[in-house]
Design a protein around this nucleic acid. Structure first.
Lengths: 260, 260
DNA sequence: CAGTGGTCTAGACCACCAA
DNA sequence: TGGTGGTCTAGACCACTGT
């Protein structure tokens, strides 16, 4: 049934069909944390090569339905965590109640051409950069680079201990009245540094959020955050309203079971 | 340099190294629309199996840097398009100036359990569903399912021609005063229907945006939109502010060239 | 038709983890 | 040490595009 008839229908790729079968099985017969049969066995059971099976698992992992751990197995993933992203809710990078930020380091350096353009300042102007990790339930969910032109923080106290720099910058930022935010969200992958901070291998898909903060008509900060796409759902709630649950998922299917 | 010393360092996977090399080449030596050498030749040039090369290309495609067309070749992708997503800017699904929506169909049916819960209504209650495609520069960029409980539109005129239904629903919606929006963005993949509307193969990564619209304290609509992750960058701008350009990209590298 | 990317196979070896 | 997922190979065939 559907839009494609039986004749002249292009055969659906095996891996896509597999993904659908596995997805139904996951929805109906497995629950969070359970481990699937290993790849070699699943491949044999479905009569395909391991590479083909893995292609199906890759899809499901991208969708956040599976988690694969080397040496352990393939597990059913927990539903994605809704992560609030708004200054009101999570506060200035560090000020919110959730308080789930951990500062990694803080540097002060001249702006590259790229960064200067993004901040609307001249190349080479001094910029403070605070690098941080956002923790949710103790696990790293996002990294963030917060770039602040030195000119936006005229009252920054002089040099202090390395670990104090970040605190000073953030404290000064909180005193500014932010009257405008401009956001963008797109798909990216974690490069070397980010991957380490997120405790994931390089190439892990992430949601990249770029936020410009304006105060008194001037750009005072640029935040570039990368959220783990497999486990995060970015929420821009103004009001809590009603719980949102995914529209979709259905049916049932046998075929996959721990035992044979 | 970094946290891992030279000793005991795990060798970087070939495909990841390849991706880095190719990325540098793309940034420095190619421009939008140019075609790369074909996969078999690139694989030979780098001394790897075609499958390994393809793994690197998969990454770059996920990052929106490459577009692969069967029968044609692998092309350098255009920078992602910034797509404004806010009721003020793009209007009620259909009312904005950009006016880039094309209605696919409109159905009126009892709500499934899932949908009912998301809308905060009882299962089986009547819901209008408008399915549409968002066009940017003439190309389909997103699909959307707009669910509206019939109870939210008391003044909907009676049955009309099929093609008029969607228009009526949208027109009635515009008359409501929306006093709250709650958004969520996460990663997903295009299933059969969506894939067709987006003119992409199934499994294509998409940014799924779920929006709840409230009026007078009640949920009046639920929009589920899927944006092509390869070509779209979702923007939630309040004010235009300054142009945002990606922070990153660099260097140069030879090795890849059309001729040998 | 020749050339391209897309799918699939069968097998090998490696890195990691738990017992 | 045995089992798991991660990487890589060499080759085959298919589906699509242009000429």
């Amino acid at each position: 049934m559907g839009t494609t008839g039986q004749l002249s229908a292009v055969p659906e790729p095996k891996y896509w069909h597999l993904r659908t079968v596995l997805l139904r099985a996951i929805d109906s017969e497995f629950s969070t944390g359970q481990v699937l049969p290993n790849e070699r066995e699943l491949a044999a059971r479905f009569g395909v090569a391991r590479a083909t099976l893995r292609q199906a698992l890759d899809q499901l992992e991208l969708e956040g339905r599976l988690v694969r751990r080397r040496g352990i197995g393939t597990l059913i993933a927990a539903p994605r965590v809704g992560v609030p992203v708004s200054r009101q809710e999570e506060g200035w990078p560090g000020a919110g109640r959730s308080q789930a930020w951990r500062t990694v380091d803080c540097t002060t350096a001249p702006a590259s051409a790229q960064l200067a353009q993004s901040l609307g300042i001249v190349e080479g102007a001094t910029v403070h950069t605070v690098r941080r990790v956002r923790l949710v339930e103790g696990r790293p969910m996002a990294t963030e680079s917060l770039h602040v032109p030195a000119s936006a923080l005229p009252h920054l106290p002089g040099f202090r201990a390395e670990s104090d720099r970040a605190r000073s910058v953030l404290r000064q930022l909180e005193r500014l009245e932010v009257d405008g935010e401009s956001r963008a969200v797109e798909l990216g992958v974690a490069e070397a540094d980010e991957a380490v901070l997120l405790e994931r291998p390089p190439g892990t898909p992430v949601l990249v959020m770029t936020t410009q903060y304006a105060s008194a008509g001037r750009l005072v900060a640029l935040a570039v955050s990368t959220y783990r796409a497999d486990t995060c759902k970015l929420t821009f709630g103004e009001t809590g309203l009603v719980e949102v649950t995914p529209v979709g998922a259905a049916g049932a299917a046998a075929e996959v079971r721990t035992a044979s």
